[in-house]
Write a protein that binds this DNA or RNA. Structure first.
Length: 768
DNA sequence: CAGTGAGCGAGCTTCCGCTTGACTT
């Protein structure tokens, strides 16, 4: 073999191999091939921060193969991405494969086109050690922060917690937003709207002033009664709209969330599928740049589909802070492919990417914006209305970026009007409106905020969200709003009516809420490790990484000046700070006269009666799902101690209501049945029995077939992942090509036999 | 799988960024 080319992604390897011809073998490293082992710190803080890199288990085979191939190759071309991480990947490859400088060449390209790759091969260089060192600094800093902070949390808050440069700031954003919302006081005011009809077209105008209360609004409506309305001013102004830049990872996640309702991880999964099928370019990128080839084919396509006048070639440049620009923007591989085969999600996401990319290369939309002012004969106040007419649709023909602002109103067309024209108001309304608290984060808007702060990378946005949810710092939830009353006035046909209407306020769909744990951990970290929790921390260290990359700074001395004071703080905090429990005194238990607290315990949020250092031991109870340490009342806390309770007998066995790890339940003869939304304090015996019967029926429905095999029972059942065979405590997969309904006892035994002696399924508790 | 929360102490947990599959009851 003459040439071995190593890239990061296997899909990329396949494409490039086609460009390079048969003298080149192209292989993938599947990302990083060496890393710090996760079991230990693996950074020698006594010895100039020497990192201890190892080849992880799941990369052993990759490295083995690359080592073999590189031995027989004349030249090894390291073609990982041209950013900090990519440079480090090349360096680790060189080290791990034992490559000599003579036979190794480093090449880079930003777009996967034949000319870009051939050009890269013509211009090889050697590995940029400064850039590698910047990556080592990044890696070592993250390890030191994560692996020194997390153990402090285990000691001072709760085991199994984690902290890090990225995740802890993400949680802080959510915690602080929640507190802004909690502290928010809605102010109401009266908005006045007038409806006019001209030549059969109705339009709505809003009074330039809002009134503080109903009385003022009513007084104004009384003035309007019998007044004359006329157009006092009419302004027409041309305006234009410009298309959004092509997709990056972050903007794709935001648009897929707004328009398709995809979670951040779903978007990435579907995009990965499209990428592997060669339909789109790489999906983890912070670049908005399009290759010349893409610009040209987009232009061609737009001309063909919509006409030359719709085309406008635009080059975009990134403005985001940490952008490293190793790839192109996310775009269709072939601009001429308007639709793809695949499942619905793939089709929809591709459609979004195609439209966004095409629109980014289209002409501005030209509009005419009209503002009309309507005077009132009995008042100095005016009504105004805005209308918009599209003169040339331009990119709007294809695509308009979504918005997160739920209150944005669509501007429609206004009828033809002239100054001085008399108008007749068909209706004038006074509506009480409330100011809105800041919006809670969605997954996608959190990603946007993190990107804005330069925190995290395209490959980590989705995993970061998974982590903070897995640690139970944050929950993604929908919550029902509450009914709110608002005042409403209407002036119609010379009479003013007054009403109190109701609306639903504060409803949330798939938003991120902090948990009690998230709040306690954030408060603890902000108090003790303010530097790292600072929103600018990443930006600051990034600046230093850049200096290292430019050869102006030594990476170990940068780490040293960070680590020395940081380590001292961790030691000091471990020694001197009290346990962080978020304890709150709720009041006094009337039965015992002892204090009742809400606090965070080893197993999560709980309430406690009495103190630990008292003679009488304290009593404890976990909070229930939906309850929070911040707002649980004394009464609710005392209710928690009323469980478990007996509510009667059924089939000669006791019925006991309790609340466990998986929510409220009724226990009957060793079996547990979830009671769902029923209140465990008031559920009746009849309801409980009904639920038990339902559960029995459902369990019965799961059984497709049942065989007696001597002493044992073998069942064919239908579960979440399709049909399976159950014997004793063990479950067995049914091969894909087998019809579950037609399985005989012999068939089942054969399948069980084949899958063999699997380890007996044991509960986690039993293992312990 | 429906408990636990004091104290004792062993042994466990943990980061961010680069990449894909294997596997699920």
């Amino acid at each position: 073999m003459k040439n071995l080319v190593i890239v990061e992604s296997p899909a990329k390897a396949k494409t490039i191999e086609g460009f390079l011809g048969k003298d080149f073998t192209v292989k993938s490293s599947f990302g990083h091939i060496r890393d710090l082992p996760s079991k230990q710190l693996s950074v020698d803080v006594e010895n100039n921060y020497a990192p201890d890199y190892v080849i992880p288990k799941d990369k052993e085979n990759v490295v083995k193969e690359l080592r073999k191939l590189s031995k027989s190759a004349e030249t090894v071309w390291l073609a990982s991405d041209e950013d900090r991480e990519g440079e480090a990947i090349s360096w680790h490859l060189q080290e791990a494969l034992g490559l000599t400088a003579e036979k190794t060449k480093r090449i880079v390209f930003h777009e996967i086109t034949k000319s870009a790759i051939l050009n890269a091969v013509e211009n090889p260089r050697s590995i940029n050690v400064d850039l590698v060192n910047a990556q080592q600094a990044r890696r070592v800093l993250d390890r030191l922060v994560g692996y020194e902070l997390s153990p402090v949390l285990w000691k001072k808050v709760k085991p199994n917690l984690s902290a890090g440069r990225v995740q802890s700031v993400a949680v802080r954003l959510i915690v602080e937003r929640e507190r802004e919302i909690e502290d928010f006081n809605a102010v109401s005011s009266f908005r006045v709207l007038a409806y006019f009809t001209v030549n059969g077209t109705e339009f709505r105008a809003e009074l330039s002033k809002r009134f503080d209360d109903l009385k003022e609004a009513k007084a104004f409506l009384e003035k309007c009664n019998g007044a004359d309305f006329s157009v006092s001013d009419l302004q027409k102004k041309p305006a234009k709209r410009t298309p959004a830049a092509p997709f990056t990872t972050s903007t794709l996640q935001q648009e897929a969330s707004r328009k398709l309702g995809f979670s951040v991880s779903r978007t990435m999964r579907v995009a990965q599928d499209l990428y592997e099928q060669g339909k789109i370019t790489y999906m983890r990128t912070d670049s908005v740049n399009l290759s010349d080839l893409a610009l040209n084919t987009a232009k061609e396509e737009i001309g063909k589909l919509y006409g030359e006048e719709y085309s406008k070639t635009r080059k975009y440049s990134s403005k985001s802070k940490g952008a490293q620009e190793a790839h192109e923007a996310i775009r269709p591989t072939y601009m001429s492919v308007q639709k793809v085969d695949g499942d619905a999600a793939q089709k929809r996401l591709y459609d979004l990417i195609w439209k966004r990319t095409i629109a980014s290369q289209m002409a501005d939309a030209e509009l005419e914006r009209t503002t009309v002012t309507v005077g009132v004969s009995t008042s100095d106040l005016n009504f105004t209305a805005q209308g918009e007419v599209i003169k040339f649709d331009g990119f709007l023909k294809v695509y308009l970026e979504g918005t997160d602002d739920e209150n944005e109103e669509q501007k429609g067309m206004l009828p033809d009007l002239s100054v001085g024209q008399q108008l007749k108001a068909t209706k004038i309304e006074g509506i009480e409106r409330f100011s809105l608290p800041p919006a809670r984060y969605t997954e996608a808007s959190l990603v946007r905020k993190l990107e804005e702060l330069g925190i995290g990378r395209p490959s980590t946005y989705a995993p970061t969200i998974s982590t903070i949810i897995a640690r139970n710092y944050v929950v993604k939830e929908s919550r029902e709003g509450v009914e709110r009353k608002y005042g409403y006035l209407a002036l119609v046909d010379g009479a003013i009516s007054e009403e109190v209407k109701t609306e639903i306020a504060g409803a949330e769909k798939s938003k991120l809420f902090p948990t009690d744990i998230g709040k306690v951990v954030t408060d603890f970290l902000v108090e003790n490790f303010g530097e790292i929790l600072n929103y600018n921390f990443t930006a600051q260290v990034e600046k230093e990484f850049d200096e290292i990359a430019e050869g102006q700074k030594e990476w170990t001395s940068m780490i040293d000046s960070f680590y020395k004071p940081f380590h001292e703080t961790t030691v000091d905090t471990e020694k001197n700070s009290k346990k962080a429990t978020g304890e709150r005194l709720l009041g006094v238990d009337p039965d015992s006269g002892r204090n009742v607290y809400a606090r965070l315990g080893r197993f999560g949020p709980m309430v406690q009666i009495g103190e630990a250092d008292n003679e009488e031991k304290p009593k404890f109870s976990s909070l229930r799902a939906g309850q929070s340490m911040d707002d649980v009342t004394l009464e609710e806390a005392l209710d928690l101690f009323k469980l478990p309770r007996e509510i009667g007998e059924f089939e000669g066995e006791k019925l006991v209501i309790g609340v466990g790890k998986y929510g409220p339940y009724v226990r009957h003869n060793k079996s547990f049945v979830s009671i769902g939304d029923e209140d465990p304090l008031s559920i009746t015996k009849e309801t409980a029995i009904e639920l038990i019967k339902q559960k029995r029926e459902e369990a019965h429905k799961m059984i497709i077939n049942e065989f007696q095999d001597g002493e044992e029972v073998i069942q064919v059942k239908i579960g979440r992942y399709g049909p399976y065979i159950a014997k004793g405590r063990n479950n067995y997969r049914i091969p894909k090509d087998v019809e579950a309904n037609s399985l005989s006892l012999e068939d089942c035994k054969e399948i069980i036999e084949k899958q063999g002696d699997r380890p007996k399924r044991v509960s986690k508790r039993a293992k312990k």
